[in-house]
Amino acid sequence: MRFRKLHYFVTVAEELHFGRAAQRLHISQPPLSQQIKSLEEDLDAILFDRTSQRVTLTKAGEALLPQAKSLLQMWQNTQDQVKAVAKGEEGNLSIGFIWATGTPHFSKSIGEFKKKYSKATLNLESMSTVDALQALSLDKIDLAFVFLNPSVDVSLFKQSHYEHQDNLLALPEHHTLARKSRVSLSDLKEESFVMFARASHPSLYDQTMNSLHAANVQPNIVQIAKVTQTTRTLVAAGVGIAIVPESTKYDQREGLVYRPIEGDLPKLEIYMVWKAERETPLMMRFMEHMLRQIKETTN
């Protein structure tokens, strides 16, 4: 490779002595001289003036030296980058995640990954399950954290379980049910509900409504909230109550309390989902990191 010839040239140029340059390169002097001669033939230019007393750069050699160093550094950088990408230490990864994933341990795990692999770029975007799966299908993102259950069709994707969350009841702090340590589904009769949009998580919405109906609760839905922040704001304002994932409890805003719910509600299972053909070393390293971190957190 010509990069090797350039490396030999730079070494001789720095030493201005073929013997010392050969020692640095761990080769004998004759092959070194042959490589320099071959480079001169490639360039059709004499690079060194050689006498029995000394070796000096010609004008052509002086012109080549900074360019050769730049090319060698560029080649080294390229090799380092390629190796880092192959090891999953560098590259770009686009990630969609549902709002329920936004826990302190999720954020901490992301931060630790970015700190450890500073050359990796993570593009994170909050999405609903429906939007995330569609984005995956259209190759707009590489990986998604979504709610999954048997009724959600993910046959086009690979998947790995990330975490389980329980349901909680979000209440205004002065609500009568806030006096209880635990609330049963049957306690929710005649209550006004703030619900998430069915279009965002249709399977979860339907299962939640079926669970309420099975407990003889006909929820009076007074508000549909498209984002969780709105749900919490409305509940804290006394507009209604809401069934939320336990990750919501990390938002300890004024006027809002959470209580465990007793009853048969849908399981909240969060999965990592991706296309097999879009797997990269960076994606695999990231998923391994996230699974390791969640395991350490829950143990």
Rank of each mutant, 00 (worst) to 15 (best):
H7E: 14
E112D: 14
G102Q: 12
T51N: 13
V217E: 00
V235N: 01
L185W: 05
K5P: 02
P219Y: 01
F196W: 12
Q34K: 08
A199D: 10
F147K: 02
G240F: 11
S203Q: 04
Q81C: 05
S247K: 06
R182A: 10
L171T: 05
L148V: 06
L234S: 05
A242S: 15
S52Q: 14
Q252S: 12
H7K: 12
A236C: 12
P172H: 15
E163L: 13
E190R: 09
E296R: 15
L282S: 07
L47R: 14
T103L: 05
L212M: 06
E112F: 03
K83L: 08
N77W: 01
S137C: 01
Q223D: 04
S126G: 03
F147G: 02
P202C: 13
N210V: 06
V130G: 01
H201C: 02
I95D: 06
S33F: 00
A60T: 15
W75I: 02
H17M: 07
F147Y: 15
I221C: 05
S155G: 02
L32F: 12
F48A: 08
E125L: 07
Q223K: 08
F196K: 02
A68Y: 09
V12S: 06
S186L: 04
E277K: 11
G255Y: 06
I95R: 12
R50S: 11
L268S: 08
E15S: 10
V222Y: 06
S151N: 06
A60C: 09
E277R: 08
A215C: 11
L265H: 04
P66C: 08
V257Q: 04
H17N: 10
Q207P: 10
L138S: 14
H7W: 07
T298Q: 13
V273R: 01
V12Q: 11
P245D: 04
E90Q: 15
P260V: 05
G19S: 14
L168E: 01
L291Q: 13
Y258S: 14
S38W: 06
F48S: 05
V85T: 05
M287A: 04
Y250S: 09
R4Y: 15
F48E: 09
T121D: 15
I36C: 10
N210S: 11
H175D: 15
A236T: 15
A178D: 00
A21I: 07
D139R: 15
M283T: 10
H175Q: 03
I98N: 01
E173F: 07
Q34L: 08
N149P: 00
R182Q: 15
W75Y: 11
